[in-house]
């Protein structure tokens, strides 16, 4: 049973290099960003402030809110990167996080080597990668370039490769920071279909986005965040319209 459940989740970031109080004041004055707390251990930012929610199977959740409202931190907390400072976070199911598509890929390596490099960081065994490697190469449309170092690729080509790799192995929970769109017009149509198919294979999607149109098109539920709080949590009634 795939699920995400949080109770009174609170996350404080320690800030180590801001010793001066004036900097602190400057940050507080800024319109965006989380609340700044000043405790005995120095300055820390409260990125997530006491939130509780649960996401069940089949839900497509859109996270909205301005920069620094805690969306990305929440995604990372779900991914298990940030352990709760207080409260709890319980996740059942495998996770694939599409926060940085080209994680671990290196320009000096060939596209082929990078497929293995990228996959291993998603926890996929070599033998499993080998089964899908042709499919990845074919979808990326890199052809002979796959045997060339990635530094010879254009930005679009690298992204296409990373995208093809990341959308090959489905997981129960998909985390995404902004809807992915890659490549030129032709490719991006093809990519859109693949991404939708990939998400359909998953059980939960959590998508942080600044694009309300995209969220309305995809998500069944919209959570609005502000300064680390959830200020609105509602079903998306416009879905499919």
């Amino acid at each position: 049973m795939t699920s995400i459940k949080t109770e009174n989740l609170t996350i404080f970031y320690p800030i180590f290099d801001s010793s001066s109080r004036s900097l602190k004041k400057a940050v507080v004055r800024a319109a965006t960003g989380g609340k700044i707390a000043n405790d005995a251990h120095g300055i820390s930012v409260c990125a997530i402030d006491n939130i509780s929610f649960s996401i069940g199977e089949g839900e497509r959740v859109g996270l909205v809110g301005h920069n620094g409202s805690g969306k990305s931190t929440l995604l990372r907390a779900i991914a298990g990167v940030y352990a709760p400072t207080m409260g709890s976070m319980e996740v059942n199911g495998s996770i694939v996080s599409l926060l940085d598509l080209s994680l671990g890929m290196d320009n000096e390596f060939t596209g082929y080597e990078n497929i293995f490099m990228r996959c291993v960081l998603m926890g996929i065994e070599k033998s499993e990668v080998k089964k899908h490697v042709d499919d990845i190469i074919e979808f990326s449309e890199l052809g002979q370039y796959i045997r060339m170092p990635m530094r010879t690729y254009s930005t679009g080509m690298s992204l296409r490769l990373a995208f093809s790799i990341c959308t090959t192995f489905p997981a129960d929970i998909v985390l995404m920071d902004e809807w992915l769109s890659v490549g030129d017009a032709d490719f991006s149509k093809k990519a859109e279909n693949r991404l939708l198919e990939f998400i359909n294979k998953s059980s939960i999607l959590v998508l942080a986005s600044h694009n309300p149109g995209q969220i309305e098109k995809i998500c069944t539920r919209v959570i609005k965040m502000d300064h680390g709080h959830i200020i609105e949590d509602k079903m998306n009634n416009n879905l499919g319209k």
């Binding site: 991914a79 990167v81 996770i95 994680l103 671990g104 926890g123």
Partner: peptide, 8 residues
């Protein structure tokens, strides 16, 4: 860090 901050 790029790995640590994205994958657990």
């Amino acid at each position: 860090q790029s790995i640590i901050k994205q994958v657990s």
